[in-house]
Amino acid sequence: MPRADVVVCPECDLVTRLPKPLRGKRAYCPRCGAVVWRSGVPFRALLPWVVTAWVLWFASGVQPLAQLELFGQVTEVTLWTLAAALARGHETGLAAIVSVTTVFAPLALLLTYTWLLVPLWRRRTVPGIRLLLRYAHWHRHWAMLDVFLLGVVVAVVKLGDMARLLPGLSLWAFVGFTVSLAVIHALFDWDRYRAEWLACHRVS
């Protein structure tokens, strides 16, 4: 194995040695400026965030995000039934895009982070880690929770003059879920994860 302080830039392929001592939150490639090292936290510290994210994920789906009232009529939409409502109106393409980016990709991302923590906890490897390591970065692009929230804000403003909108409890749960996934993503140290997992892998 190359020495632990030798890194390869993910963008320009440059081989560099990390500065010593490592200070701050990040180290950058001297040639192209890409991030080559990020400080992480012990994986133990991620567990409360993962549990929080699971609770908020359920909370964000079971109740309506918001209710819309017009002349006494009320329509409501929950996160999980949004795609179904679109599919009923024969908007299958739109339903597919919305369900992947707001339900399936975030769920896959949360499942990934949860499952990745299992081998570190049990001190032996579990099936599927290789696959998750390979595709984990894929979910990050396609889980568009923050973008969806901006969409909710724009939609609310557009409807402002037309109907009365009552935000639901699930909307706040959804905001919390978005934040906790972002925190897990920011704190997850992939380089150290690989090293610790390989250690478990060899032991078992």
């Binding site: 002349f71 009529q73 329509t75 739109l94 895009i97 980016t101 707001t102 939609a155 037309m162 109907a163």
Partner: peptide
């Protein structure tokens, strides 16, 4: 920036799911 452009798609999806008041709107 890539993913932020999806905001329009979400707005339309939300409006279409919310605003279903038959004849009125």
């Amino acid at each position: 920036l890539g993913r932020w452009s999806m905001v329009d798609v979400f707005v339309v999806a939300l409006l279409a799911a919310w605003v279903q008041f038959g004849e009125i709107a």
